[in-house]
Simulated scan of single mutants.
Amino acid sequence: MKKFVLMISLLFFTLSFYTITVAAEEKGDSQKQESFDLAPDAKSGILIERDTGKIMFEKQAHEKLPPASMTKVMTLLLIMEEIEKGTLKKDELIRVSENAASMGGSQIFLEAGEEMTVNDLLKGIAIASGNDASVALAERIAGSEEAFVKMMNDKVKELGLENTQFQNVTGLPAENHYSTAYDMAMMAKELLSHESVTEYTSIYEDYLRKGTENEFWLVNTNKLVRFYPGVDGLKTGFTNEAKYCLTATAKKGDMRVIAVVMGAGTPKERNASVSKMLDYAFNTYETKKLFEKGESITKLNLFKAENRNTPVVASQSISTLFKKGESVDELSTSVKLDAITLPLKKGDKVGTLQVKNGETVISETPLVVEENVEKASLFTLFKRSIQKLSKYD
């Protein structure tokens, strides 16, 4: 009987010890998870590496929220695309409409009928978050703000984003105008493929109409540009509904990261959360640069093209990301070309560069042509056919 009681006591002791241990471990895991919240004062947030798109931290990253002036990340993306295509010149003078001049909120106080260069309007958007400058450029590109908003939403679909819808180009409060931390990060990733955008978003202060009676002092709404080394963009946002938001990017060495916070209570909390994310990224990870944007990868040898040998280049910079101290297997790359239909325009996708770490695919990047490719003329085709036949003589 004593042995039985002893066995029962030992059993209860063992079970109690196990329960206490498991509870302690679960509590410890919970505390560890809580301590890893890099954006404790924000409703949502995300941290990604730009080249690979790898997520290093996320919190409610797919929750639909008002993005406020972070909307202008997409506005800037479409503007930079037009500049890169050559359909919009930085020295072009834009005449400001009554509609653009009437925008409230953040503005650079454009007057109806005033003319300003694309370059200065870009500064007004990137530095001071000018709603009037945003609408002025949108109207120049698409004819109206409404038409430009359609372009924005079409681009959202093209990028495969499912939780964003825009109603205006500025981020001013509007029904069914929303995005997510994840979607904003992907838009920022695309915007940063136009690397010259940081020439604007990295400016802390500047002047418009310098030397005139209407001189206007621009001060960047993103204070981290001045106070966090390596930060060179991108876009802040605030409305009473959205609270304090920020899509930021920073570069250290070859590594560029993007951090997004939405719904922070104060500017200080917003900046602190983004700073924590950036610290974590640069302290924990490192990258290996493989190719620069525009670097030649291969060539197209097209019999029916006027220029038979056409360079194929990386559409964006290509890197690998890994934790510091982590072993990396042998990296390998391979090119897969698409079926080609002529003619091609500069920037058209013609293939994919795949990067593997061992047997694991770690990235796939579009390859594009760096120049227009026209169909060969009948005379060119005739000459090539003769040359080809002569080889068999």
Score class of each variant (00 low, 15 high):
residue 182 Y to N: 15
residue 182 Y to G: 09
residue 184 M to I: 14
residue 185 A to P: 04
residue 191 L to N: 00
residue 191 L to D: 00
residue 193 S to G: 12
residue 196 S to A: 13
residue 196 S to W: 07
residue 196 S to D: 09
residue 197 V to H: 05
residue 197 V to C: 08
residue 197 V to F: 05
residue 198 T to P: 01
residue 198 T to R: 15
residue 200 Y to H: 08
residue 201 T to R: 09
residue 201 T to N: 03
residue 201 T to C: 11
residue 201 T to H: 09
residue 202 S to T: 02
residue 204 Y to W: 11
residue 205 E to Y: 07
residue 205 E to L: 06
residue 206 D to I: 00
residue 206 D to K: 00
residue 208 L to F: 08
residue 210 K to S: 04
residue 212 T to C: 07
residue 214 N to G: 02
residue 215 E to V: 01
residue 218 L to P: 01
residue 218 L to E: 00
residue 220 N to T: 01
residue 220 N to G: 06
residue 223 K to G: 01
residue 223 K to L: 10
residue 225 V to W: 13
residue 226 R to A: 12
residue 227 F to M: 11
residue 228 Y to C: 14
residue 233 G to F: 11
residue 233 G to H: 10
residue 234 L to R: 01
residue 234 L to I: 15
residue 236 T to R: 10
residue 236 T to Y: 11
residue 238 F to M: 03
residue 238 F to I: 01
residue 239 T to M: 08
residue 239 T to K: 10
residue 239 T to L: 12
residue 241 E to V: 15
residue 244 Y to P: 02
residue 246 L to M: 09
residue 247 T to W: 00
residue 248 A to Y: 02
residue 248 A to F: 02
residue 248 A to V: 02
residue 249 T to F: 11
residue 249 T to P: 05
residue 251 K to W: 01
residue 252 K to C: 03
residue 252 K to V: 03
residue 253 G to F: 09
residue 253 G to T: 10
residue 255 M to A: 15
residue 256 R to I: 04
residue 256 R to F: 10
residue 256 R to T: 03
residue 257 V to D: 14
residue 257 V to P: 08
residue 257 V to I: 14
residue 259 A to V: 11
residue 260 V to N: 13
residue 260 V to H: 15
residue 263 G to I: 06
residue 265 G to E: 13
residue 269 E to V: 07
residue 270 R to I: 01
residue 273 S to V: 14
residue 274 V to E: 07
residue 276 K to I: 00
residue 277 M to P: 06
residue 279 D to S: 11
residue 280 Y to R: 05
residue 280 Y to H: 13
residue 280 Y to D: 04
residue 280 Y to E: 07
residue 281 A to K: 06
residue 281 A to L: 05
residue 282 F to G: 06
residue 282 F to M: 10
residue 283 N to V: 00
residue 283 N to A: 12
residue 284 T to L: 04
residue 284 T to I: 00
residue 286 E to N: 10
residue 287 T to G: 11
residue 294 G to R: 08
residue 296 S to R: 11
residue 296 S to P: 05
residue 297 I to S: 15
residue 297 I to V: 15
residue 298 T to K: 05
residue 301 N to A: 15
residue 301 N to Q: 15
residue 302 L to W: 10
residue 309 N to S: 08
residue 310 T to D: 03
residue 311 P to I: 07
residue 314 A to M: 12
residue 314 A to Q: 06
residue 315 S to G: 03
residue 315 S to W: 02
residue 318 I to V: 14
residue 319 S to T: 08
